[in-house]
Nucleic acid binder design. Structure first.
Length: 855
RNA sequence: GCCCGGGUGGCGGAAUCGGUAGACGCAGCGGACUUAAAAUCCGUUGUCCGUAAGGACGUGGGGGUUCAAGUCCCCCCCCGGGCACCA
């Protein structure tokens, strides 16, 4: 039987958690005259495994900031929710037959309970759940905004297909060209997909990065992902064919060095360009490259492959005949899918030319004799009329010449591709569209009821069954809810399990109201009833997470995604903290949707996340990434049982800078636990009443006052700048001082507790209460620094000789250089160093250093 | 290959307007309290030389600038992350 610990965290923590919940301490206020502070966490995917230690790391960071800003008097919005659509839940359903909805509800309950045990100051009244029809109603509504703006379309796209499993696989489910489940072979297969035209926003997504306060590396990653480049397109006549070949280059200055052309195997002109005698070889090559996975294509990067087409292009300036090759180092998805090859000045072209014995003509010359391929700058040679021009000037002149010929012009390209926005899955948002015949589409157009929601050009799709048109469902009829299905297994055709929900899929459909009945029933009366099919695809998990930060502002609104007043007041999060793994996709997709909503006049800011911070990854005790198989996983609940939530929070922050990657240490946590026990002991005596050293109304020693104010200053600054580890250090220093002090004023003890409160809120509340306060410590205004207490009469001066420390002294603030020099000369260590030397110079940094330069 | 981050005691990490390197914590060592343990407290701990006072060395390696460099400049090595034939 263990002795009841004097610091009984279990009791304290659960009682204060209950208090906060009952008192609605953290409900964001609706008083909109107060200054707002909106701080956002990346909401979790509620997996079956429960909370991972990585979650509370970032969440403690935001919680400290939220509580701090509240103490500073801001109206704080600090919400949490659940990104609950997703693959693992669906796979669990396939395995067990349990409805994904039920799994989500259960997992969410576990997550919520675990988060509450850590004492986060979330406004749980504002929880969102992406799988709740009341939420995804608005995800679908935003999709309709994109749809009507012509930003959504349908096309075939290659996706991973596994014949044995009869399903489409996500990139993450394909490991080394085999399915993750069962290790079956996978191939690329073209399937019908919804695609969002994010490329239409490429420039703005790039430009507006300048406006946001994000980690530089994340901005850079985004801008590289968007991948803007400027160059020129040029059109080459084809020898003996009535066609032109368009290419894109960033180096129009090297046009005169183009010695051959390359087409991607998928290029539409390949067929026409291939001469009879090359036909077998070319067809064989196309077949081989089509069978290669992305992995193989890049893995084989060292050895370039390709075949000659037998045809020639005409150089637009020299009119020389240049051979045309087919090679898969040219990607169909970038530029025009064809290039002019300049082997002298491009590494890849150089390798290819070497391999196939193609001519290499140097046209740029640098300062010295650089080896080829030469990528740097210089001026032109072997370029006829352009010889001698600096390359930048040559770019302009060559583009101008092409322009005059009508054979080319300046152009811009992006690496960013349109966003593949559909999944062949059950557990996702259904697309709010109905597929109808052209005739029925026209009827719906004529009816005028959908006028505001129709795109200028209809979204259509043609397959072996003919052409169908996508009609938006009337927004008022949203949400379009997921039907129940017998089985969550894929349909085996490459379509989602929804295909099997026939009564939902094949329907009689009222395009004015969105009403529907199964097609197996009799057609209801009325002109607006037409035969329709539902979309079998569902939206990807990104959809719900693209806009959740908006829903938190007004989560229960059934008339809009959020009221204009709420959007106007909260605008967008002031701080967003989450993992760097979302540096590109989630953040880019969110920014895209936000900009569409901005164009629609719904949101008031151009960018969703003005300030972004990434917490670093937490490693296992062995310095390795935590994983079940390594057995180095730390469970938050185990830590809480043993040390309490305050210790967990404090230790997570004390480990190192929030942004750093750092290993857990089960020994290290003892240190912060001891610190909290010390704080407890210094506040509460053995008998449970206030420690007798804390006295009301007494004057603190100068030293104590100085340290307290230094601590307030340090904790304030460090909290503002998210240097939470050093804020904790300074609180430890103060606690050590309390311990060694005979007495301390009640007022000082209380101010210290306030500093601690955002970090270790339960113990702070408890001690605050025991010090006689009746209201929550979260309502007390943040302590201010009394600058007058920071200055002391004396200051420490370090003596140096030739820059090396040789002693120190305390002198009055008013001491002059001469005074201090005199003291330094008395110092034996200084004397020993300057003895027999000539003093050349004295460097004096007031309040810090006196350096004697002597030799 | 390219682009970012980063290398500081036995360990996690402090200190970057150039100004005492190693705050705070862990671990270690010595001690107090205790029948004993837990808990707690006190002292000590970069390396080397020295009984000590003190001295020399020391922030991945090499060079440089400076009265003074973890911090600034040049070259190199290592680790982590991202991208990866984008013409």
């Amino acid at each position: 039987m263990s002795i009841r610990p004097d610091y009984n965290f279990t009791e304290i923590e659960s009682s204060w958690q209950k208090y906060w919940e009952d008192s609605k301490t953290f409900a964001a206020s609706s008083e909109t005259d107060k200054e707002k502070y909106y701080i956002l966490d990346m909401f979790p995917y509620p997996s079956g495994a429960g909370l991972h230690i990585g979650h509370p790391e970032g969440y403690t960071g935001t919680d400290i900031l939220a509580r701090y800003q509240k103490a500073k008097g801001k109206n704080v919005l600090h919400p949490i929710g659940w990104d609950a659509f997703g693959l693992p839940t669906e796979q669990y359903a396939i395995k067990t037959g349990k409805h994904p909805r039920q799994t989500s509800v259960d997992n969410i309950a576990t997550f919520r309970k675990q988060l509450k045990e850590i004492g986060f100051s979330y406004d749980y009244n504002r929880e969102v759940d992406t799988t709740d029809p009341r939420y995804y109603r608005w995800t679908q509504w935003i999709f309709l905004q994109l749809f009507k703006r012509g930003l959504a379309y349908v096309d075939k796209r290659p996706v991973w297909w596994c014949e044995e499993l009869g399903t489409v696989l996500a990139n993450e489910e394909v490991i080394d060209g085999k399915s993750e489940r069962g290790s079956y072979p996978v191939v690329r297969r073209n399937l019908r997909q919804w695609i969002l035209k994010i490329t239409a926003y490429a420039d703005r997504l790039l430009e507006d990065l300048k406006e946001v306060d994000w980690p530089a590396s994340t901005k850079k990653m985004q801008s590289e992902w968007i991948g803007k480049s400027t160059g020129a397109t040029a059109r080459f006549e084809l020898d003996g064919l009535n066609e032109t070949l368009e290419i894109y280059t960033t180096r129009p200055d090297t046009l005169m060095g183009a010695t051959y052309m390359v087409l991607s195997p998928e290029h539409s002109l390949v067929g026409q360009l291939t001469v009879e005698e090359q036909k077998t070889e070319v067809e064989e090559y196309i077949k081989t490259s089509a069978g290669k996975s992305d992995l193989e294509r890049t893995d084989l990067a060292k050895e370039k492959t390709g075949v000659f087409s037998g045809s020639y292009a005409i150089h637009p300036i020299t009119t020389d005949r240049i051979p045309i090759w087919i090679a898969d180092y040219v990607l169909i998805s970038y530029g025009t899918g064809a290039i002019m090859a300049v082997p002298a000045h491009d590494k890849r072209d150089f390798e290819f030319a070497e391999q196939f014995g193609l001519p290499i003509v140097q046209v740029i010359k640098g300062e010295s004799d650089e080896p080829l391929p030469y990528i740097g700058d210089g001026s032109l040679i072997n370029s006829g009329e352009f010889d001698g021009l600096p390359w930048q000037e040559a770019k302009r002149q060559i583009i101008a010449k092409l322009g005059a010929n009508g054979t080319g012009e300046k152009s811009t390209q992006y690496k960013l591709r349109d966003w593949l926005f559909s999944r062949q899955r059950y557990w996702g948002e259904p697309f709010p569209v109905a597929w109808v015949s052209e005739e029925n589409y026209q009827a719906a157009v004529k009816s005028g009821t959908l006028d505001e929601w129709l795109p200028e050009d209809p979204v259509r799709y043609r397959d072996e069954n003919g052409e169908r048109f996508a009609l938006p469902v009337p927004p008022a009829s949203l949400p379009l809810e997921l039907p129940n299905v017998e089985s969550y297994e894929p349909a085996g055709t490459g379509e989602s399990p929804l295909k099997n929900a026939e009564e939902w899929m094949e329907i009689w459909y009222q395009f004015e109201t969105g009403a529907f009945v199964p097609a197996t029933q009799e057609k209801p009366e009325g002109n607006a009833w037409v035969r329709a099919s539902r979309e079998t695809n569902t939206m990807p998990q990104w959809a719900g997470s693209c806009w959740y930060y908006l829903r938190y502002m007004d989560p229960h609104n059934s008339a809009a995604l959020a009221s204009p007043e709420a959007l106007e007041y909260w605008k967008s999060p002031d701080m967003y903290i989450g993992g760097a793994e979302h540096a590109v996709l989630h953040l880019l997709y969110s920014r895209f949707w936000h900009k569409v909503l901005y164009d629609e006049g719904i949101v008031k800011t151009k960018e969703p996340f003005a300030k972004l911070f990434h917490q670093g990854m937490l490693l296992g005790e062995d310095g390795q990434k935590m994983s079940k198989s390594r057995g180095n996983v730390i469970s938050p609940s185990v830590v809480i049982d043993r040390y309490g939530a305050d210790t967990l929070r404090l230790y997570l922050m004390f480990l190192g800078p929030l942004e750093a990657m750092k290993p857990w240490s089960s020994k290290g946590i003892e240190g912060v636990y001891r610190f909290l026990k010390k704080v407890w002991r210094e506040s509460i005596g053995r008998d449970g009443s206030l420690n007798s050293k804390i006295q009301d109304g007494i004057e603190d020693r100068k030293e104590t006052e100085k340290l307290l104010n230094e601590t307030i200053k340090k904790v304030t600054e460090d909290t503002e700048n998210i240097r939470l580890n050093t804020a904790i250090s300074s609180m430890m220093i103060f606690a050590n001082h309390m311990q060694s002090s005979e007495s301390i004023s009640l007022s000082a003890a209380k101010r210290f507790l306030q500093l601690l409160a955002p970090y270790a809120p339960h113990i702070a509340e408890e001690l605050w209460n025991r010090m006689g306060e009746t209201e929550s410590i979260t309502l007390a205004p943040w302590p201010t620094v009394d600058e007058s207490k920071l200055v002391s009469d004396e200051v420490k001066i370090i003596f140096q000789v030739n820059g090396k420390m040789r002693g120190q002294t305390m002198v009055s603030q008013s001491a002059t250089q001469e005074d201090i020099l005199e003291i330094a000369r008395q110092e034996p260590r200084v004397q020993a160093q300057i003895d027999g030397k000539t003093i050349r110079k004295i460097i004096f940094v007031p309040g810090k250093i006196l350096n004697i330069v002597a030799n």
